[in-house]
Amino acid sequence: MIEPLSLRMAQHIKSVVPDHPASVPVLQHALAILLNMVFITGLTLVISVFTGRTREVVTIMAAFAFLRQMTGGIHLKSGMGCVAVSTMLFTGLSFISLDHNWTIGATLISMLLILVFAPAGIERQTRIPPRYFPLLKVAALITVGLNLWFALPYVAISFFAQTLLLINGGRWKTL
């Protein structure tokens, strides 16, 4: 659904502005990323209103997205697969309640996973030169490490879920 929709939108943009420097495939890719984000955010927020977990879901999505920019991780082949998996993940995580010890434990494990695996699979996903990847790892470690001080359970579970997606260099079998 996302890919055909983004293609139609890109073709329409190109027909309205034929001199635009971006090609239809480039526009399609950018629109697919945008639509993916909009569908994940919108669907997850709608579900969270019904579950009464909106604050938790917003915290989880923000923490996940922020850390993901620094660490990378698995990418699914299908936009709708990504929407479905991400929506279920964020909604499911909002129902997990960690006490202080589990929060600290999840944070420490996340830091270890970052130390070993980050960044993973971002070579073709970012414009940041590879020579800066060690800085991304340090920034991610600091970001996650701050939760040792704040001990926010939903941030810890979000960071933990994101860092699990780093294992195997972000090259898991994708849907």
Results as ranks from 00 to 15, higher is better:
Met1Glu: 13
Met1Cys: 13
Pro4Glu: 10
Leu7Glu: 11
Arg8Cys: 15
Met9Asn: 15
Pro18Arg: 12
Pro18Trp: 13
Asp19Ile: 13
Asp19Ser: 15
Asp19His: 14
Val24His: 07
Leu31Trp: 06
Leu34Pro: 01
Leu35Lys: 04
Asn36Glu: 14
Ile40Cys: 12
Ile40Arg: 04
Thr41Glu: 04
Thr41Met: 07
Gly42Met: 06
Leu45Asp: 02
Val46Trp: 10
Val46Pro: 06
Ser48Trp: 06
Phe50Pro: 07
Thr51Phe: 10
Arg53Phe: 03
Thr54Met: 14
Met61Pro: 01
Ala62Lys: 09
Ala65Pro: 01
Leu67Asn: 03
Met70Ile: 04
Thr71Leu: 00
Thr71Val: 05
Lys77Ala: 10
Met80Ile: 14
Cys82Pro: 07
Ser86Thr: 11
Met88His: 09
Phe90Arg: 03
Phe90Gln: 00
Gly92Tyr: 13
Ile96Lys: 05
Ser97Met: 12
Leu98Glu: 09
His100Asp: 15
His100Gln: 15
Trp102Lys: 01
Thr103Leu: 05
Ala106Gln: 05
Leu112Ala: 02
Leu112Trp: 05
Leu113Pro: 00
Leu113His: 02
Ile114Phe: 01
Leu115Arg: 01
Gln125Asn: 08
Leu141Thr: 08
Thr143Ile: 09
Leu146Glu: 08
Trp149Tyr: 14
Trp149Cys: 09
Phe150Glu: 07
Ala151Glu: 14
Leu152Gly: 07
Pro153Gln: 12
Pro153Met: 12
Val155Ile: 11
Val155Thr: 06
Phe160Thr: 04
Gln162Leu: 06
Leu164Met: 10
Gly169Met: 01
Lys173Gln: 11
Lys173Trp: 07
